[in-house]
């Protein structure tokens, strides 16, 4: 069994016997956390094709928080200059360090034109850092309301910090004075929660 293999692994040394497998293409994932929100860049992943990229994206970037909609596209589409005459989704990174944010859609005949139109229509007088454009034919759009992403049917509190706050607080208060618990937990709030 796997668990037994885990602890009885033959020790291996020296060079690997196999060649490196060629690099998979990189995919960018955008998630929308609730209906009123816009798609934000969630992260990237490596996958050989669109079907597996979707499977991987759903189960990784779709499971950290509630997610109602997800877009998956190849990274090289986002910066391509060429393209067909069609509609393009536009994403703006407003400053270095920030996440790309979906701003809208334009009709254009290639990537360059799409990004130019984006500057004009959506960035106008606002300072921005970089723009991604993606032809709609190159995006897989997953709608969580018809094709479940975030698991709504079972309790997901076990994988969220908030799922433990009350019970942990109660257990601390059985051991320490409230004031000491406050001091200790104030650290929690600073950066990360």
């Amino acid at each position: 069994m796997l668990s037994e293999s885990r602890t009885n692994v033959p020790e291996a040394k020296g060079e690997l016997q196999t060649q490196e497998v060629q690099k998979f293409p990189i995919w960018e994932v955008f998630t929308k956390k609730k209906e009123s929100a816009v798609h934000l860049h969630a992260g990237s992943l490596s996958a050989p094709d669109s079907e597996l990229a979707q499977c991987f994206a759903r189960e990784h970037y779709g499971q950290d928080q509630p997610c109602v909609n997800m877009w998956v596209t190849r990274r090289d589409f986002l910066t391509a200059d060429s393209g067909e005459n069609e509609s393009y989704e536009l994403f703006v990174q407003w400053g270095a360090g920030l996440r790309y944010e979906h701003v809208g859609e334009v009709e254009a005949c290639n990537g360059v034109e799409a990004r130019d139109k984006c500057k004009e229509l959506f960035c106008a007088d606002k300072k921005h850092f970089t723009i991604w454009s993606c032809p709609n034919s190159g995006i897989t759009k997953i709608d969580g309301s018809t094709n479940m992403i975030w698991r709504e049917t079972t309790d997901q509190a076990y994988r969220l910090a908030s799922g433990y706050s009350k019970v942990v607080r109660k257990k601390w208060e059985a051991l320490r004075e409230s004031k000491a618990v406050d001091d200790y937990q104030s650290e929690d709030l600073k950066d990360t929660y």
Binding site: E59, H60, T154
Partner: peptide
């Protein structure tokens, strides 16, 4: 990526059992 995905499905199954 497959590791992460397979683990999500495993968690579903345990949650369903629960």
């Amino acid at each position: 990526e497959a590791d992460i995905a397979f683990s999500s499905l495993a968690q579903d199954d345990i949650a369903h059992a629960s």
